[in-house]
Design a protein around this nucleic acid. Structure first.
Lengths: 209, 209
DNA sequence: CTAACGTTTGTCCAATCGGTCAAAAATTTG
DNA sequence: CAAATTTTTGACCGATTGGACAAACGTTAG
């Protein structure tokens, strides 16, 4: 698909990076169709034709952004290992995901935007790479359940619920802050969330009997 | 703000309803800026000028849609009562929210789109009506905790987590279906989700000791 | 019937969109 | 230095956008 080794100068590397950073900001808050090349160019501090010299089409920027995103986005799940105590393993997965929501909210929103609109550009990835990874981890979790290490439930929906609860703090950040108000909506909200989620999932998954 | 009683003919009532239905479909899948008046008009089976006869601006349609949405959207939380068994009360709240995600996914996505983009049109509502309602219910939940009926945690984040997990099945529907695959991604996925969420929250919230 | 009113549409407009192009400016290379 | 190459930009284009408007059409009350 992509040319194997696109030779790039130093300036090209830097400017492309600059554009991607600006595009992440714009796309994540306005969606793909809601964002204009002019907006991205202005945010990157260059003219529109100049931007189009580095990325020939608007879609190319978005595609590059999405490709990079998915790698880092799924990293925490990949790290979910069979070695170590299951409850500890799940606890760190939840913590890592919540940290990502805190540190990379724009990436989370970019992804959410794409999914919300039917994932037109990454559907094959969801059905392929993502499904494979989740199925694999679901098997690991199922093993924990069979061994009586955690309560028996549906591993897939368990993973969904971890995604949903953690990403919520990035995607619905404005709502969270509005509801918590100026007092509790400050920086401490992520620590409160971490405490709550840990309790919910650990207590909810402790083996019975 | 709004004229108190906009007198409308029978045709106006019907056509406005038709437009709102079409607009819900279009807005929820393309976002506000990603949707065009032509798309909505075509989906409603009328010409663009005709549509603009009933709603003078594109924003008016969106605004009307959002106002209606919020009432029905918060209804389940309003019903969360102090009477009755706390765990049962929470269980039915979760079930109702999940049913709404199943039966009104477009409304959920419309709301998600708005929040994702910083809630530019409903921010006052979030800080006002919504915050008040959530604070009120958080007090109720706190009472249950003090009475030892459910485990002690943060009521606000508990509510967030219920929102996140249930709405996930509407907002991220494509991803859920893609990961579950053709076998498990069918109609049964909502029942599986209901079973899982019930277990997670009930076990996670059972009082200790 | 006809006048009044409500409804519908074809046509048009200015603004904005993604993208092109040639030429200027800056940089690298020999 | 000068030539070759890369980078930057102003001007421009066709398509699409939200919206205006007057004329045509339909309906209803007297």
């Amino acid at each position: 698909m992509e040319s194997p080794a696109p030779r790039r100068t130093r300036i090209q590397q830097e400017k492309r990076e600059l554009i991607l950073e600006a595009a992440l900001e714009v796309f994540s808050t306005n969606g793909f169709r809601g964002s204009t090349i002019d907006q991205i160019a202005e945010a990157a501090g260059m003219s529109k034709p100049n931007l189009l010299y580095y990325f020939r089409r608007k879609e190319d920027i978005h595609e590059t952004l999405m490709q990079r995103l998915l790698d880092t986005w799924l990293a925490p799940l990949r790290e979910l290992d069979d070695i170590g105590d299951p409850l500890t393993e799940l606890r760190s997965y939840i913590r890592r995901k919540l940290e990502m929501a805190r540190d990379f909210p724009r990436e989370s929103r970019l992804f959410a935007n794409e999914i919300l609109q039917g994932a037109p550009r990454i559907m094959p990835l969801l059905e392929g790479e993502l499904k494979t990874l989740v199925d694999e981890k679901a098997t690991v979790i199922k093993g924990w359940m069979r061994a009586g290490k955690i309560a028996k439930t549906d591993p897939w929906h368990l993973i969904f619920s971890i995604w949903a609860t953690t990403q919520h703090y990035a995607d619905f950040d404005v709502q969270v802050r509005a509801v918590l108000g100026p007092d509790r909506g400050g920086d401490g909200r992520f620590e409160d969330a971490a405490r709550f989620l840990e309790q919910l999932f650990i207590e909810g998954l402790k083996p019975k009997g």
